[in-house]
Design a protein around this nucleic acid. Structure first.
Lengths: 327, 327
DNA sequence: GAGCGCCTGAGAATACCTTTCAAGGTAACG
DNA sequence: CGTTACCTTGAAAGGTATTCTCAGGCGCTC
């Protein structure tokens, strides 16, 4: 069984970890988490006792909380918080996270919140990913004779996307969005198969069934889901978490797609890396094949992708080559 | 806010302070200072007792040392050291952005670069988006009688995704990934139709044809592409740019998907916003419909098993201050 | 050489953090 | 519907870390 809480040294901050874990936390733990999200620097000024009191809980629980996040104890947690605070000191961090769409938001508001939410969910996903596990999964994919990918509904597109990518670099992959076809495939797999089930909630019956069937056939099973504790996650031999800090965007799970895609990206790269040269060749070949279906590029060596002409984005920044203001 | 004897909280780092004070220090104090100059991160891993021993002195003196530097005590000193370390190591880290995948990259490297690349491309997309145009497109979508969405290859999934979302909130949308079916649909549209063509390169013949046909039929045409100057972008009445600023990751245009998705997100939200209450109802309804296909959630308010046990730190209950392996 | 003052370390005192343990609650099971 | 098993939590014990106190040491001055 893989390690269950966070690995200690991911390239992202404490806040992201908390966000990533929040959905999985118990009520009391969540209280601590919320407090820290509201006041990320609290641990720097307060002792564990103060913090516990502030969160309406006990020091013992705070210690456990730190452990969950992957730190040996409160002291190390505090150090990490300090490091984080230094990095992001005066950022817009506390802008208005966790807001839902409101009818009177301006387009700019919507855009800003959306960007914020996505960035955070990507970071959370990165924070929560078990890299060792990813590497192991990639190794198995690279070495397997066949790869089955299951996903229905919205996740069907994800499954297909992963299939497309991996197939292009030489993995014998199939994606199944239909239960019947998927079950048929799952039932004829063996130990040389890797099976991946994609479901955001991890509760989708169809996907669970397909992955379960593949497991019965002896395949090495991988779940890509939002929650390790979901049925799908429990079922699989390896679970990769695409974290969606649920509270962000009310209307729909927009971030879920991004997080899932992110995990797929990583998986793809890790597999590609294992056979680097061959991969480059294959990609070049398949790109060439698609070229025939394309118009010739009108401005070939010219300036890159129309970056220069900035549209009438109200505040015409002109001037600045990258108007990526950090607001 | 503890204002203390010496330089209270100057913007300079701990190291600088020590260097500045070194000449004025007594022999024992200097020993501590030297040690810290040699190993600036020592306080993060060691207790005050360890540090004192290491410097050949006593804890009491280390406390005095911290006071001399302007901190209330060792704990605050440690926090400051952590912040310092984060700042400096962060600068080193920024070095290799925009890198391509290399065969000898560790999984962590890959993850970090991937995260970096995606964040940048999302920001770039957000910065380059013409918000007025988005709002106008959203208005037309909200008011149209029919919406056709075209995309082939990898963009077919995007088209379907957008269709799914908008359909759920009451837009009469169709997605076409097949040229023939798509052309058939495009040819029977009229002025009350909005047509969206999705193609990253903007060079895909099929998509250009479909969108062109829709335009001939009188539809309001929208292009979602990487480049305004591409044939698809030139053709459309409105062009929304999903920016992929650089070729971060050689093997494939991973970022493109994220950027496109981001534009779709925004479009969706803007449309949803135009009919806020009805949208919420519809979403609730369609979510409920899917619920029937799901397992009941295994752990509703409770805490998943196994989370409590601490990971690889293994049996070592506390004690070991650095299970935080640095690599 | 005696007195004075500053610096230092040992140990006491305190604050802090972690662990243990038992109670309370919830889900699974008969 | 009761029972069991398990999970989570807080209280309190236990141990560690940090700070405080105080006496001794060293150098300086007179």
């Amino acid at each position: 069984m893989p390690e269950l809480s966070l690995s200690a040294d991911t390239p992202v901050g404490v806040i992201e970890r908390i966000e990533a874990m929040l959905p999985q936390l118990s009520k009391t733990m969540a209280k601590i988490g919320m407090l820290l999200l509201a006041e990320p620097t609290a641990p720097l000024e307060m002792s564990i006792t103060d913090l516990a009191e502030r969160a309406g809980t006990s020091p013992a629980t705070v210690t456990r909380f730190c452990r969950l996040l992957g730190y040996p104890g409160y002291v190390q947690f505090r150090v990490s918080v300090a490091a984080d605070a230094a990095r992001t000191s005066d950022e817009e961090r506390r802008a208005d996270i966790g807001r839902t769409l409101r009818p009177d938001d301006s387009a700019q508001d919507v855009l800003r919140n959306l960007l914020n939410a996505h960035e955070r969910s990507l970071r959370a996903t990165a924070a929560l990913l078990d890299l060792d596990m990813c590497a192991r999964v990639a190794a198995r994919i690279a070495g397997c004779r066949h790869l089955d990918i299951y996903g229905t509904g919205g996740s069907a597109a994800m499954a297909a996307e992963l299939r497309n990518r991996l197939y292009r670099i030489g993995v014998n992959a199939h994606a199944w969005g239909d239960v019947h076809a998927g079950l048929a495939s799952a039932s004829i797999q063996d130990e040389d198969t890797v099976a991946i089930g994609i479901s955001n909630s991890g509760l989708t019956n169809e996907t669970i069934d397909m992955l379960g069937s593949a497991k019965e056939s002896g395949a090495f099973t991988v779940a890509i889901t939002n929650r390790r504790t979901s049925p799908l996650g429990q079922l699989a031999d390896a679970t990769l978490i695409a974290a969606v800090p649920e509270l962000y965007l009310h209307p729909a799970d927009l971030s879920a797609k991004h997080s899932q895609l992110f995990v797929l990206d990583l998986l793809y790269l890790l597999v590609a890396q294992r056979n680097y040269d061959a991969t480059l060749e294959r990609i070049a070949a398949s790109a060439a094949a698609v070229l025939g279906r394309r118009r010739p590029d009108p401005n070939h060596g010219a300036q890159p992708r129309g970056l220069q002409q900035v549209p009438g984005t109200s505040t015409g920044p002109a001037k600045s080559p990258n108007s990526t203001r950090s607001n």
